[in-house]
């Protein structure tokens, strides 16, 4: 058993050394996430400076939505897209801006729903909220 722990310790140490070297040789930082966020990702302050309140779309799970959301936000995710898109279209008017958000610092769901709104529904002026629900709470 002692031998097992020695081997484990060696593997752990080796991994720490290799990953440190990797981080040094191939540095990568959070700034790269800007690429993932894309051009139509907006900071909360940018959205709040809109002349008219945008149509908020909450792309999170039902449980998170039930716990609290942005006032007036329409719950729209992959599970309920076909049903709840109707609620969004009822409120939508030409020129309306749509801002999709999900959980936290970075989140694929808002991006995916924003893409669906543009590609499947042909909507324009669709944005993604950087930082999602967390940034709304900290605004």
């Amino acid at each position: 058993m002692k031998n097992t722990f020695l081997q484990f310790g060696f593997i752990l140490l080796l991994s720490v050394v290799v990953s440190t070297v990797l981080a040094w040789v191939h540095p990568w930082d959070r700034a790269e996430l800007q690429v993932y966020e894309g051009e139509n990702a907006l900071e909360i302050q940018e959205v709040l400076s809109f002349d008219e309140t945008p149509l908020w779309v909450d792309a999170r799970e039902q449980t998170m939505y039930d716990q609290g959301t942005i006032p007036g936000a329409i719950h729209l995710n992959h599970d309920n897209f076909e049903q709840n898109i109707l609620f969004l279209l009822e409120k939508w008017q030409p020129g309306s801006r749509i801002v999709v958000f999900c959980d936290t610092l970075i989140c694929d769901k808002s991006r995916e729903i924003a893409d669906r709104l543009e590609q499947e529904m042909g909507l324009t002026d669709v944005y993604v909220l950087k930082g999602g629900w967390e940034s709304w709470k900290r605004r």
């Binding site: 031998n3 097992t4 081997q7 484990f8 310790g9 991994s15």
Partner: peptide, 30 residues
């Protein structure tokens, strides 16, 4: 960020050792 680097390397090291049959018990514990 440190975990982003460390975890895949730990997986790679343990997986390779297990495949090769070297330090097998340590790799299995990992």
């Amino acid at each position: 960020l440190p975990m982003t680097y460390f975890l895949p390397v730990w997986e790679l090291t343990s997986g390779l050792l297990l495949m090769l049959g070297k330090l097998t018990r340590g790799a299995l514990l990992s």
